[in-house]
Write a protein that binds this DNA or RNA. Structure first.
Lengths: 141, 141
DNA sequence: TTTACTGCAAACATTTTGCAGATGT
DNA sequence: ACATCTGCAAAATGTTTGCAGTAAA
C-alpha cells in the first residue's frame, strides 16, 4: 500500500542515462505525492504556477511508462491517466472513480489463471490488465 | 467460445426502442462475424463499399456499448477497439495483439478476489477490468 | 562543452456535433 | 406521419512534433 518514493524514481531515471530536469522532477513528485491516477491535464493544472508545459508533461509520462515508473490506465471514455508505481514488482490497482485515488494490490493471483487460459484457448498469454474500480472510503463518506 | 449472433443484437436493439437501420445492421454484422476487436476505422474500411459514414459507426458503437452488446477495450497508445459480446453474461476476453482476434473467457474468477480487496483496501469494488493479451494460434504460425 | 531537454505553436489523429435531408416504424 | 437516424462538414479534444533556445552532465 506504500507508493513509490520520488527519490527512487529520480535515481532510476538518472541511472538509465536520462537527465533529471526540473519538469521531470516536478511531474514525478506530483504523481507520487498525490497517489492518484492523473491525466496530463491534471498535472498541468497542479503545476500551473511552476510553468511546466503540457508537452513536457506528455513526454515525461511517456518516459516514465517506458521505464515502468508509471503505468497508464484507461477507463473507457476518459483520457489516459497515469499512476506512479514501483518498477520492480508486478502488481495491480484499485482506483476510485470519484477522486481517482489509487491503492496497490500487491499480489498477482492470475498466473495460474493465465496457464489455464493458454490450455483452453490456444493463445499464448503475454500480458494481462487487471484493474478494480470502485469508491474509496473517503468518497463514500 | 461461441460469439453472439447478429440476430440477438438486432432484437435487443429493437426491443429497447431503437430503430434497426441499415448502418446499424451492417456494423453489428461485421463486428460479430469478424470476431475481432475492431476500431471505428477498421469498420469503416470493411464497410467502405456499403458507404456507412464514420459518424454513424461511432454513434452505433456508443449505442452498442450502452446496451452491453459490445465492449470497448483500450490498450495504451491504441485507439478504442470494440468487441461484440452477449449482454446477459459477465465475462472477460483474451485478445491477440497481432490480429486482434478475440476469444471469450466465460467464467469470472474474480468475485472472491474483489471481496478480499474490499476488506483490505477499504474501497467498495464496483467493477473490474480483466483482459489477457497474447498471440493466437494462427499468428503464432 | 556537449547533448539532451524544454517551451511554443503548429500539426495530427480520433471522436463529437449541428443541421438538413433520409429512413424505419 | 412522425420521430429517429444518417451523412456531411466543421469543431472539439487529446496527443505529438519540429525547431530554436535552455539547462543538465
Amino acid at each position: 500500500m506504500i507508493r513509490n518514493k520520488p527519490r527512487n524514481a529520480f535515481a532510476e531515471l538518472q541511472s538509465r542515462g536520462h537527465k533529471l530536469t526540473q519538469p521531470r522532477r516536478l511531474v514525478i513528485e506530483t504523481l507520487v505525492n498525490q497517489s492518484r491516477a492523473m491525466t496530463a491535464d491534471d498535472l498541468h493544472q497542479v503545476l500551473a504556477e511552476r510553468k511546466v508545459s503540457l508537452a513536457s508533461i506528455y513526454r515525461t509520462l511517456d518516459l516514465l511508462a517506458e521505464l515502468h515508473l508509471a503505468e497508464p490506465v484507461r477507463q473507457s471514455g476518459d483520457e489516459a491517466r497515469y499512476v506512479a508505481c514501483r518498477p520492480e514488482q508486478h502488481h495491480h490497482h484499485i482506483i476510485c472513480t470519484r477522486c481517482w485515488q489509487v491503492a496497490d494490490i500487491d499480489s498477482c493471483l492470475l498466473e495460474p489463471v493465465a496457464k489455464a487460459i493458454e490450455d483452453d484457448s490456444h493463445f499464448d498469454v503475454e500480458s494481462h490488465v487487471l484493474e478494480f474500480y470502485g469508491c474509496c472510503a473517503n468518497c463514500r463518506g
